[in-house]
Each structure stands twice: as C-alpha cells, then as structure tokens.
Design a protein around this nucleic acid. Sequence first.
DNA 1: GCGTAGGTTCAAAAATTATTGAAACATCAG
DNA 2: CTGATGTTTCAATAATTTTTGAACCTACGC
Lengths: 173, 173
Amino acid sequence: MKPPSEKSAGRRKSRPSFEPLQPHEIELADFFVRMAGILGVPRSVAEIYSLLYVSSGPLDFDHIQGRLGMSKGSVSQGLKFLRDHEMILSVKEKGARRERWQPTPSLAASLVALLRSQVLPALEQAQPSLQRVLADVQKLGAQPEVIERLSRLNRWNSRALELAPLLLPPPGA
Amino acid sequence: MKPPSEKSAGRRKSRPSFEPLQPHEIELADFFVRMAGILGVPRSVAEIYSLLYVSSGPLDFDHIQGRLGMSKGSVSQGLKFLRDHEMILSVKEKGARRERWQPTPSLAASLVALLRSQVLPALEQAQPSLQRVLADVQKLGAQPEVIERLSRLNRWNSRALELAPLLLPPPGA
DNA sequence: GCGTAGGTTCAAAAATTATTGAAACATCAG
DNA sequence: CTGATGTTTCAATAATTTTTGAACCTACGC
C-alpha cells in the first residue's frame, strides 16, 4: 500500500529524489517572488534564482527541478531567462557532462541588467511615437496646455535616453 | 433596420455618443500602456490616463467611458486607481453634479507615488523575513559564502528603507 | 556512426489577472 | 422625503500569462 520508501536500499537507477524545501528556503523564495513580481518576472524564475542564492554550491538542472518540484520546461525556460539577463553563471567542471549554476556575484548588477532590458527598449520605441503625437496635436491646433504637456513628455523621454547609459550601464562598461 | 442615426434630430434623451479615438490619441495610449505594463498597471488604467493627458479640459465619467468604449466598472476602478495614486485631480464646478478629471500637473510626481506604493510595502515586509532567513542559515551552519550573500541582502534592504524617504518622498514632503 | 544523457521547444492545460455589467449604493435637486 | 443621476461593488466572464509534459534536437562518449 505504501510506495517504496525513498531512502530505502533498492537503488537501481532510482530517480534521485530530492529534499523538500526547508522553511528558510521557502521564506527567501517568497521574498524573491514578491520582488520579481514588481518587475513582472514570473514566479518560477524567482524561485530558481532564490534556490541558487541560498545554496552552498552550484546546482545542476535535475537538482533544481527536483527540489522545486517543477517541470523540465519551466526549469529550462527559467534558466534561459536568468542566463539572458546575466543573473546566473554556469560552472563547467572539466570532464563533466552537465552544467551547474550559481548566481552571479552581484545581485545589483543583475537588477540593473534586468531593468535595462525592460526600460530601454520601451524608451527607444517611444521616441518617434511621441514626436509624431506632438506634431499631430500641433497641426490640429490643440490647446497650448496640451502641447506643453506633450512637449514635456518628449523632453523627458529624450533625457531618459541620454541618461540611461549612465544609470544603467551596459554589461561591458 | 438601421439604428437611429446618431447625430440625427430625434434627440429625446439620446445617449450622447462620443467620437472614436483619433490616431494620435491611440498612439499616445499605446505609449502609456507600454510604460504602465512595466510597472504592472493594467491597460485600462493607462488608457484613461492617456486620454485625460491629451484632452484639453477635464473629462467626466461618461466622456471617458464613451470615448474609450469601456465598461462603467472599468472606468470606476481605473479612476479610483489613478486617484489613489494621486495621478489625477477632480475639478468640481459649483452647481455641477458630476466630477470632471484631469491629470495632476506633474507626471514625475505621479510616477514617484506609483513606485512608492509598489516598492515600499515590499521592502518593509521583507525586513523581518530576511532577518529570520539569515538567522536560520547561521544556526544551520551554512557555508560562509551563503551567509555573506544573505547579509548583503539584509544590508541592502535596510539601506533601501532608509533611502526611500529621500528618493521617493511621500506626498506631503 | 550509434545510443543516450542533457536540454530545448511548443502546443495544450492551468493559473492568474483584467474587464464587464447588473444590482446596490450614494447624493443632490426639487 | 423622493426620484433621478452618478458612482461603486463584485460575481461571472474574458483575456492574458505561466506552467506542464511529451516530442524533439544536440553533442558527446563509446
């Protein structure tokens, strides 16, 4: 009636079976999940990062999947996201097949990269759009009040684009 | 067979019928919707703000609903959100029944209020949590590396809380 | 090459979040 | 008060986002 005990001897090619998360691991994950939420980063990604963050050494794919109890797909996509945003590093041991992951040394740098990737494209895309809108309302003879608002918005956007490289320096700078 | 022409004479208590959005209004809305998306603000809220932003005078409830073609519920909730975050002001004309809305003078201040409301509570809630996690891993005798990471996270959080009032000053400061 | 460990992709399912609209509530003019 | 206008609430629905898992690549050791 009971399933074969997980730790019991019969270890053929047993699926490894991982420890469930400890209370402190869960609490930290909650923290990261909340913060990630503000930036629109999905829960599973935050959970992966959090786990790597409290773990002593780098973890491989199966460990992550096992301890978090999440699907292969999610782990793969989550690691991709974290890689793309330079939030984790792989530690390749020579002669080893699988990659093992750990957080990059600086969480600050990671957050900057994340912000960059969200904000910069939006600002860049906005530029021509805002200029068109301003031109339109001028042509249509809108109230000075509205023209003033839109001018200010335009100036803001331009300045943000100029400042961005300083506040959110690209990786190699 | 055809519905009574909207502009035609028969104006009993005709539902007012509003102009569809102009191209430039749509383009600006796209901009605001995108920006709002970064902060997790719903589309309908961004659309309302955008409309008020390009409009010459303050608009009332029905105007907003009519021009954006959105439900009463959405307009009500959207205005509530914008009010709560001090992004719009109502202009009460004496003797008038309905309220009319316009954006607050400073979009910058609005954004600060918005950030505040998202980030501050998260930081405050995190404080005790992070301290517990740190205490736990110390008690459990984790690697110095992990303890160091969590200490830094704690320090960060504390400093962010200290700095918050400066960077994100509360309304009356 | 061949087989397989290791990982990715992506369509379908689940979970979450936003919107709607009808009923309830509030407030003001008469 | 009363009735109409103006607004909010909230359960139901729709839209969107996230997760899953099975099929599919890919590269390496043999």
